[in-house]
């Protein structure tokens, strides 16, 4: 992946000066963490969401330089974590639902997918591992503001 002007052949006018740089990590993470097709695998990988939340919550009490020592400095600036509050309530609702689903699944002794919006696909679980730390019901949201509806 390169950045820079659009590769339009045959243009004559000098293109606007766009900054040249290698793809930066934040740009990639904005996309690979938050976007792309979301499907639950037959491992409950969606727990990652909650893991990210706990990291974030920990940051609330960690002083900034300590967070850096922990190597999670970047999350402090995670654009998807520091979005506005517009759909905080919606995200809270989703989060609570997800937590509820996870707990229900655990009670049933299954490793089902915790998200109502994701497909359950998969074979019988075999992992006995404890799931990640209990998510905390803090109003922390992972996703950036929902994509505006695509036009026509």
């Amino acid at each position: 992946m390169t950045t820079g002007g659009l590769p339009v052949p045959g243009r004559t006018a000098r293109p606007p000066e766009h900054r040249q740089e290698s793809t930066n990590l934040a740009d990639i993470l904005e996309r690979v963490l938050d976007k792309g097709i979301v499907i639950a695998g037959d491992i409950r990988v969606n727990l990652l969401d909650i893991e990210l939340l706990t990291i974030k919550i920990r940051l609330l009490v960690a002083s900034v330089d300590k967070a850096r020592e922990m190597g999670i400095d970047w999350w402090e600036h995670d654009p998807s974590l520091s979005s506005g509050q517009r759909d905080l309530n919606e995200e809270n609702r989703r989060l609570r639902q997800r937590i509820g689903d996870l707990e229900a699944a655990r009670t049933r002794g299954e490793l089902g997918d915790g998200s109502a919006s994701e497909a359950e696909v998969g074979s019988e679980p075999e992992s006995e591992e404890e799931s990640g730390p209990e998510p905390e019901p803090e109003p922390v949201r992972r996703r950036s503001a929902r994509s505006r509806e695509e036009r026509g």
Binding site: L59, L60, V64, D78, L81, S82, G84, Q85, P139, R141
Partner: peptide
Amino acid sequence: GDLNIDLGPLG
């Protein structure tokens, strides 16, 4: 600036 804390979604 040291007295600031990033609260993520809360700003």
